[in-house]
Design a protein around this nucleic acid. Sequence first.
DNA 1: CTGCAAATTTAGGCGAACCTAATATCAAGG
DNA 2: CCTTGATATTAGGTTCGCCTAAATTTGCAG
Lengths: 228, 228
Amino acid sequence: MNTTLAADSLTRSVEDYLKAIYRLSPEGRPASTSEIAHLLELSPPSVSGMVKRLSELGLLEHLPYKGVQLTAEGRRAALRMVRRHRLIEAYLVEFLGYSWDTVHQEAERLEHAVSDTLVERMAAALGNPSADPHGDPIPTADGSVQEPASTPLAGLDVGDTAAIVRVAEGDSERLRYLATLGLRPGAIVTVLDRQPFGGPVTIETRGEVQVVGQALAQVLLCAVRAAR
Amino acid sequence: MNTTLAADSLTRSVEDYLKAIYRLSPEGRPASTSEIAHLLELSPPSVSGMVKRLSELGLLEHLPYKGVQLTAEGRRAALRMVRRHRLIEAYLVEFLGYSWDTVHQEAERLEHAVSDTLVERMAAALGNPSADPHGDPIPTADGSVQEPASTPLAGLDVGDTAAIVRVAEGDSERLRYLATLGLRPGAIVTVLDRQPFGGPVTIETRGEVQVVGQALAQVLLCAVRAAR
DNA sequence: CTGCAAATTTAGGCGAACCTAATATCAAGG
DNA sequence: CCTTGATATTAGGTTCGCCTAAATTTGCAG
């Protein structure tokens, strides 16, 4: 049975903690207090306190001084928030003229306020998309996600042609810059050159040649279409 | 100058108090502690405490043991919330399949989470409507409202034909019932009969004859189209 | 293996927003 | 005019979620 302790009884704070911990433990590796504190812009003692409460609530497993991991229930709640967040982003971009670099903070507040009904209506209006405007996969309502396989642009070989499938989270500034280059999910790029030792990558997209630094090349996740 | 003390610094609670007080003081008549407590489902002492804080913040005028009134600034903040609420209701009904009896609680949460930008985008998508699905007027972004003149159905004379312009707030149950009768803003009704001493009103609408009790007849606000 | 720096937790506090119980004020009727 | 019941406020307490300062634990380096 579903031990779901009243999903709606979770406070905004708790929801934020769970989402943060989810983000910090891709494959179940424990998240540290200071990582969480940094991500949520809180002091470490605040996190320690909340972690204690949440583990007493059964939402996470805490090994003192070692780190925390979500329980199945915590993960379910976290995925619920991720689904909300990404669907809201997709909806705002599709129907209300938001750009992908401004949509995040709006979704960050709305995700705590929407009902399940509203989320599902938005999903339906969008045709139940599987990814948000950044290419991040949208968990299903029953709590499963599949992360599509992808490689950072930085890891492609010269001559590879690939589709950008996802742009890892970043600040507005960065996203806006990438948008001006046309580097967004769906774009097709071909690697023309690649400098060693973390140097820039030269690519061709939409008939234009771009040079992309290492930092950005790590953030652009691609699916290879054709090798040289 | 606008003394607006950071509009976004108001907490959800504060926003709810201001909205409640606005609702309770149609033309500046002071609202009592117990009225506010009842509307917000809080204890009177909680209200007393908050009223003290809000009057120190300059959002309302408090005459102890007498009642409270919004200051210009409090009124501005309240109208901002009312605008949000009504636009959100209109948006959800127009674009996301909500019915007028279910939309209230959703808006009640969202109104605290949306940004000004989002509110204005929704307004634009709706074509800047002047009323929400219940016929309640939507204050403008700069904080003015005009309540259209209207008469309760209960106050019409036999033979009058009128348009329903507004349905005063009520619970879902009541709204759902009225919807089944087709009695919503825009409906045209003709008064066929009217019993004295608060008795029911018999009307004709869409070719059908309905008998409406006094309670509902008070809630249906009409604009007379033609007298007998 | 010892000691030190970094990470973490505990201790103690604060403000927001609520509550109940006790007190104060008001206004209305005898 | 005074009592009394209703209404309002003050007093005192709780929980949530944050903070800073003071311990504690850990793990690495010499």
